[in-house]
């Protein structure tokens, strides 16, 4: 059984030409027949399968639909067409620190964010030291998050998000956070999770990182799958595009 099955998913956004955010405007426009929407497909007929224990990469240029696809898989968006089946628990690292409240301290945020990810307070209690240890921010635990640097925030966020043993880890550009020491630590943690049977989907613009870590890669272009296959084939083709564009 595959961990994630994406079947012919399309994601349509209505880009209202003028945004109607008030009733009056809306009704006026509706009456005059001016309610125009420009349909925009962020994803079109995308299918892919991720097997258990795989390290799966998504590549593509900006605006090719990578993040949208991740959000569809994570359940944030409901696809306009097609279906997504996910077998297992997901730890979404789509944007680190979702649900952080900048006015609360790091300690309070660990609990808040942990429960956002569906953990129980008891579980967080038992892992609290581990989280703090990993983030190396023990001295700043009782400082409101607004006084943190963005690197520090992402350290905390990464530590919380990877404290469980999720079945699936969805990571969007997260390894670009922090200094190189912490990046190495993050990669090590992800490798640890992988050896425990976690499936990872990674989006990165660093093709070098994808080549190093992924087993299989899908290349998205303008919301469609351009190519799916083993890392080397797809990455080589993707890099060829680069040269094409350069010449």
């Amino acid at each position: 059984m595959s961990m994630i099955e994406v079947n012919n998913v399309s994601m349509r956004f209505n880009m209202a030409k003028e945004k109607h955010e008030s009733l009056k405007e809306y009704f006026l426009a509706a009456v005059q027949g001016k309610l125009q929407f420009e349909e925009f497909y962020a994803l079109r007929d995308v299918s892919l399968k991720v097997e258990k224990g795989e390290f799966y990469g998504l590549i593509g240029l900006n605006g090719s639909g990578k993040s949208t696809l991740l959000k569809v898989i994570a359940g944030v968006y409901k696809p306009s067409a097609g279906s997504v089946t996910v077998n297992g628990s997901i730890a979404p690292l789509i944007e680190l620190g979702a649900g952080f409240d900048m006015d609360l301290t790091a300690r309070e945020n660990i609990y808040l964010n942990g429960t956002v990810l569906g953990l129980t307070p008891k579980y967080i209690d038992s892992k609290f030291d581990e989280i703090v240890e990993f983030s190396e921010l023990r001295d700043f635990l009782d400082v409101p998050l607004k006084n943190y640097s963005s690197g520090m925030v992402s350290r905390i966020a990464f530590s919380i998000a990877t404290i469980t043993k999720p079945d699936i880890l969805i990571a969007d550009e997260i390894l670009s956070v922090g200094d190189f020491m912490f990046q190495e630590k993050c990669e090590k943690r992800m490798a640890e999770l992988m050896s425990g049977g976690t499936t990872v989907i990674l989006v990165s613009h660093s093709i070098e990182q994808i080549e190093r870590m992924c087993d299989r890669v899908t290349w998205l272009e303008k919301g469609r799958v351009r190519m799916t296959g083993d890392t080397k084939t797809v990455c080589d083709a993707y890099k060829a595009l680069d040269q094409e564009a350069a010449t």
Binding site: D103, E108, L112, T115, G118, L119, P121
Partner: peptide, 20 residues
């Protein structure tokens, strides 16, 4: 049931922020 702790934590947050 899965998210009851989130509810609890959000209420706690609002409470803290209101009187901080």
């Amino acid at each position: 049931w899965r998210f009851r702790f989130l509810l609890q934590n959000l209420i706690g947050r609002d409470f803290k922020l209101k009187y901080r």
